[in-house]
Design a protein around this nucleic acid. Structure first.
Lengths: 241, 241
DNA sequence: CGCGATATTGATATAGATCAACTAATGTGG
DNA sequence: CCACATTAGTTGATCTATATCAATATCGCG
């Protein structure tokens, strides 16, 4: 089933077989998108939303001169541009990071689905509210944490979300971000990201190398990042190790 | 009518008389709340949402030691904790800035209202998506702008939103924030806010004094803040001067 | 194997923080 | 309505985290 991970880290309740099947029925066949591809641009009108089956994407805004600000990371099970459904256009771009696999849901079919299954509608609304909660925490991260804290916080969040979709193994997960991209997310230069990662490694907290993150001291990392997962509204039905 | 400004700056379509009346009918009588009062704390379960009739509020998160990060400013016409309706609890605190007047909507009554007027339901969803869009811009502001740009950007946004509810007169609006609070919003110290405001004043762009903001050079201000109002999704039905 | 992308390290510059007075407003009780 | 207390704003001196610039090293792919 395509959508088995559907909003798994964005909901507190289980979906019924019937609901999942109905959802599956409106999705397009899977489509592959290569890494580093911008798939949606701010302002363009949209009539479908993109469900991420596999891989990493990001939402971002570019500043006038050069600098990019990444606004969120999207992982398997995210409806990356669901807000385009009520909003009809987006206010930011979206791009793949590594290679991705997606499926599309036409907006008119979503409307029909929600009418038939109002609970799904509420769940979709809920999932966009979790987005907003993650945005708020992102604001906190940039506004109140130093370089170490920001990177640690981003790793804690990613760890928690990937746990929920079963993509953390042995405290390790795939993370195809370059140091440049980590910097674009945390508002740091790649040079400073590099030095900060070294500090974290030397402190024995995390190791990041070759597209993989290995969390050694999860509790310490969370403490220095002032991270608590409440804002992710994860239920306890998830496959948290 | 209490709710005449209901989401005025959060919607693209007009509400019908009937819809507005139905909305009004479920609201509690107006309640006054004095300035600097925390009205909702993170984690507490909620069964009603707060509609801001008059005044300014803010959402915020406190860091472990001292520093507060303001996450959003709420103005007349905002449903400040509407997300508490689907989420059942909030992930942040909310406080008044100046004196405020609010009305409450019980969640069970909201449910009934939405069933009867599905268009209102969609509008409520939409308004929480505008929140998310403002959060994204807030991330950009902190991540990619310097002190001048951040303050200029916040002023541009506030100006645009207050225009939509008719609270800008002669390029001037009431703004009961202290320099400390501007700093908590823009992640700057009050000392640096003070110096930056002087720079902006000396450049002839804005004057901020005694709880009032007077915008002298709106276009220049917007340019230096890289501000474009698209993300606010304002229609053109609004009372923009 | 070689080339472009990524990562690493060092030296220097700077925006904004911090610390420390001091002044101006605003509010309050007598 | 004044006197005093409290809060907010202003200015200066110094410090620091992170940016910037520059050079080299390493990785991963065709």
């Amino acid at each position: 089933m395509l959508t088995q991970d559907f909003l798994r880290h964005r909901r507190r309740e289980q979906l019924s077989e019937e609901e999942l099947a109905a959802l599956d029925a409106i999705m397009s066949p899977p489509v592959r998108i290569p890494k580093r591809t911008t798939i949606i641009r701010a302002g363009e009108p949209t009539d479908r939303s993109t469900f991420l089956l596999r891989g990493f994407m990001c939402r971002f805004l570019d500043a006038a001169v050069g600098h990019r600000q990444i606004l969120s990371l999207e992982t398997s099970g995210d409806f990356v541009d669901l807000h385009g459904y009520p909003m009809k256009r987006l206010d930011h771009d979206i791009a793949t990071i590594g290679d991705c696999e997606v499926a599309y849901a036409q907006h008119d079919k979503l409307t029909a689905l929600i009418e038939r299954y109002p609970r799904l509608g509420r769940m979709l609304w809920f999932s966009t509210l979790v987005d907003a909660a993650m945005h708020r925490e992102w604001i906190f991260r940039l506004g109140r944490l130093d370089a170490e804290g920001r990177i640690a916080h981003l790793i804690c969040e990613t760890f928690a979300r990937l746990c929920a979709v079963g993509q953390v193994d042995d405290d390790t997960f795939e993370w195809p971000l370059t140091q440049q991209e980590i910097g674009e997310a945390c508002s740091l230069t790649s040079v400073h990201v590099n030095r900060t990662l070294r500090t974290l490694r030397e402190a024995g907290l995390v190791e990041i190398a070759r597209q993989r993150v290995h969390v050694l001291e999860r509790a310490k990392l969370a403490r220095m990042a002032e991270f608590t997962p409440d804002y992710l509204y994860l239920g306890n039905h998830d496959r948290t190790p």
